[in-house]
Computed example of a mutant assay.
Amino acid sequence: MTTEQLKLRSMIVTALFAAIICVLAQLIIPLPLVPITGQTLAIGLAATILGARYGTISVLLYLVIGASGVPVFAEFSGGISKLIGPTGGFLVGFIPGTFIMGYYMEKTSFTFKNAMIANTIGMFIILAFGTTWLKISADLSWTAAFAGGFTPFIIVGLIKAALASWIGVLVRSRLVTAKLLLPIKPIVKEESI
């Protein structure tokens, strides 16, 4: 199989992950300010399975689809207003969160331990973006923004990080074996003699 064919397959899997994010976004546990959704689980899976480049592309594709008005965001909502509304910071935070998670995995290795570290870092990045934007857009105090947009999501976020790590590493190894994804080898610096 040529490199071009592998790249095409990787792009197809990337588009499928945008669809997976759309579907998991509809799994919702309602809370007063910001609901708990399956989006962040899907984001963690995308980063763990696809890495920095293709994972981030899948998230960007998801956000573009949602911003264009297709109801793929939580609670079957869509439109640019969601990106600038109170939960918009979480959505925008998916971009750097996914890239950093994938980048960490690529620079280390695709193991459960590294995936858990990456997904935990990504969770805190997404929560930081979301909480900051919640404070600004809803004109809340930092205490209220943390109480509504950060604190309630830590335990659930760690559970989702563990699930994304476990499932992600397993699925990634199978997709690489099936030649549906390009293998990414971590860069190891050689020591000079």
Rank of each mutant, 00 (worst) to 15 (best):
28 I>M: 09
30 P>G: 08
30 P>M: 04
31 L>G: 13
33 L>V: 14
33 L>D: 06
36 I>A: 13
37 T>V: 05
38 G>V: 02
38 G>W: 01
38 G>E: 00
39 Q>H: 07
39 Q>G: 10
41 L>R: 06
44 G>R: 08
48 T>E: 03
49 I>C: 10
50 L>P: 04
50 L>W: 00
51 G>P: 06
51 G>K: 08
51 G>T: 04
51 G>M: 06
51 G>I: 02
53 R>G: 13
56 T>C: 02
57 I>P: 01
58 S>V: 01
58 S>R: 04
59 V>I: 11
62 Y>C: 08
62 Y>A: 07
65 I>N: 06
65 I>V: 15
68 S>G: 14
68 S>C: 14
69 G>Q: 10
70 V>M: 15
71 P>Y: 02
71 P>V: 03
75 E>G: 14
76 F>L: 14
77 S>I: 00
78 G>Q: 05
81 S>E: 04
82 K>M: 14
82 K>N: 13
82 K>T: 11
83 L>N: 08
87 T>H: 07
90 F>Y: 15
91 L>M: 11
92 V>N: 05
94 F>T: 02
95 I>W: 02
96 P>E: 09
98 T>C: 15
98 T>V: 11
98 T>A: 15
99 F>C: 14
101 M>E: 13
101 M>K: 13
102 G>I: 04
103 Y>D: 09
105 M>Y: 03
105 M>Q: 12
106 E>H: 13
107 K>Q: 15
109 S>T: 12
112 F>K: 14
114 N>L: 05
114 N>K: 08
115 A>V: 01
121 I>D: 00
121 I>E: 00
124 F>H: 13
127 L>E: 04
127 L>H: 10
128 A>L: 14
129 F>Y: 14
132 T>R: 08
135 K>I: 06
137 S>E: 13
137 S>P: 00
137 S>M: 14
